[in-house]
């Protein structure tokens, strides 16, 4: 059984700050225990599929002008700067 502390730690790493902690953890824990059903699956010797896209199938790496002023849609955009919270 996954503990509340383990779930709490993951939430913190995901930068999720939640109220009603208990309710969240109960439900997350319930879903995680349901995932235990995977332990019963007979998947001995199965490989892990990967999604392959060959490099020839990518579009050409070309400059395409985009005229809209996308940057002005940013939050807290001033002059030529974006205001972000302090790093520490």
């Amino acid at each position: 059984m996954v503990t509340k502390e383990e779930i709490q730690n993951i939430a913190k790493l995901m930068r999720i700050d939640i109220e009603n902690t208990d309710e969240y953890f109960e439900r997350v824990q319930k879903v995680l225990s349901y995932f235990d059903i995977l332990d019963k699956a007979d998947i001995e010797g199965e490989e892990i599929p990967v999604q392959e896209i060959s490099i020839e199938n990518l579009r050409e790496d070309q400059y395409a002008p985009f005229n809209d002023k996308l940057i002005q849609q940013l939050k807290n955009y001033k002059g030529i700067y974006i205001r972000a919270p302090k790093m520490n």
Binding site: L13, M14, I16, Y24, R27, V28, P85, N88
Partner: peptide, 26 residues
Amino acid sequence: EFKSYISKARRNFGPEVTRRMILGGF
């Protein structure tokens, strides 16, 4: 500060999205 700002901002996700993000981190 940076991390607390993002955590605060993510409170705007509804409960199901928040649950799935936690599961998705896990």
